[in-house]
């Protein structure tokens, strides 16, 4: 996804002389192309994220469109108030690019995990929040960012290995990847690959699965979620983010307000810091987010529901 980002951005920077790129001393072996081609529009500002956001605001107030880059906690949490006051409150043209969605930093440990970023970013007025799943989607998100005004945040993980045929990109619109009438799985970001696998397995067991990919968390696509609520019997959300404040909670609000009383469950990272660490797939498995785990959990809930038992 990082390459999709730099390639897309470099292309747009050729056409738009107002595009700047700032990094908080990260992106080794990724930004060299941009830096060499536009040395006067690339700044490694050093390990100083608060200043980076303020600088970006000042550049934006001078007519620039600024991309800032770092690992997610440093790009969003260290400088949260700068993002709130300098960017969102004043509606500035700054795009925050965070790498390492969810558990992507694996053995690096908790400081580098990103489990709360969607929650805090989507709480800010004016902010748009993106969480692409595939290479193609990442390119589309950057194309949108490079051509539209306002503060935006994108969390990057690893491009979903299975490349589903994704139709035209519309900001704020979910993507229907599989149609079904029993259950809906609504997924965001790289973990889509697990959702796709789980969907295949569940379908093989005779369950009609609807699969929706959400690349824009804010503004959320209410319509596609309402359709899932009205047209299927259960809704599950899947994300590599805390179950607090992420996609699951955005969908939960729509479920609750719909008054449908539909069976609903969030799959995501628990409200706890890990005690042991490992590579991303190891951690996903530990948190019950591998394709097999998702299948198992959904089957259990679905079976209880069909048996008329209370599902808790």
């Amino acid at each position: 996804m990082r390459k999709a980002f730099t390639d897309t951005l470099t292309g747009f920077a050729r056409a738009n002389k107002n595009i700047f790129l700032l990094t908080g001393d990260l992106g080794f072996s990724v930004f060299e192309g941009f830096k060499n081609e536009f040395p006067d529009r690339f700044y490694d500002v050093g390990v100083a994220e608060q200043n980076m956001i303020g600088l970006a605001a000042g550049l934006s107030m001078s007519g620039k469109r600024v991309f800032v880059y770092s690992i997610i906690p440093f790009a969003t949490m260290r400088c949260f108030e700068q993002i709130r006051n300098d960017l969102c409150m004043q509606n500035q043209d700054v795009k925050i690019v965070g790498v390492g969605a969810g558990l992507h930093y694996g053995t690096a440990g908790s400081t580098h995990y990103a489990a709360e970023d969607i929650s805090i970013m989507k709480s800010l007025p004016n902010m748009k929040v993106f969480s692409p799943a595939t290479q193609q989607e990442t390119v589309s998100v950057f194309r949108f960012m490079a051509t539209h005004h306002g503060p935006m945040y994108v969390r990057l993980g690893k491009a979903c290995c299975a490349q589903p045929q994704i139709k035209r990109f519309f900001m704020g619109r979910g993507v229907l990847l599989r149609n079904g009438s029993d259950i809906s799985i609504i997924s965001t970001g790289s973990i889509l690959s697990n959702a796709l696998e789980a969907g295949d397995i569940l379908a093989g067991k005779g369950i009609s699965v609807r699969l929706i990919n959400i690349h824009t968390i804010k503004p959320i696509d209410k319509e596609i979620i309402m359709d899932a609520i009205m047209q299927t019997k259960a809704v599950f959300t899947l994300e590599e983010h805390s179950i607090i404040g992420g996609l699951g909670d955005s969908v939960a609000a729509i479920v609750a307000e719909s008054g449908s009383g539909i069976l609903f469950r969030k799959f995501g990272l628990p409200d706890a810091y890990p005690k042991v660490y490992g590579e991303r797939n190891y951690m996903l498995k530990k948190y019950g987010l591998s394709s097999q785990d998702i299948v198992k959990s959904i089957l259990k809930i679905w079976q209880s529901y069909k048996d008329g038992k209370t599902v808790l």
């Binding site: 608060q50 200043n51 600088l55 000042g58 550049l59 107030m61 007519g63 006051n85 300098d86």
Partner: peptide
Amino acid sequence: STGSLGHGLSVGAGMALA
């Protein structure tokens, strides 16, 4: 807009850079 201390100088530096 200011009010939380420590923001204005970074914004000013961004303007100076531009």
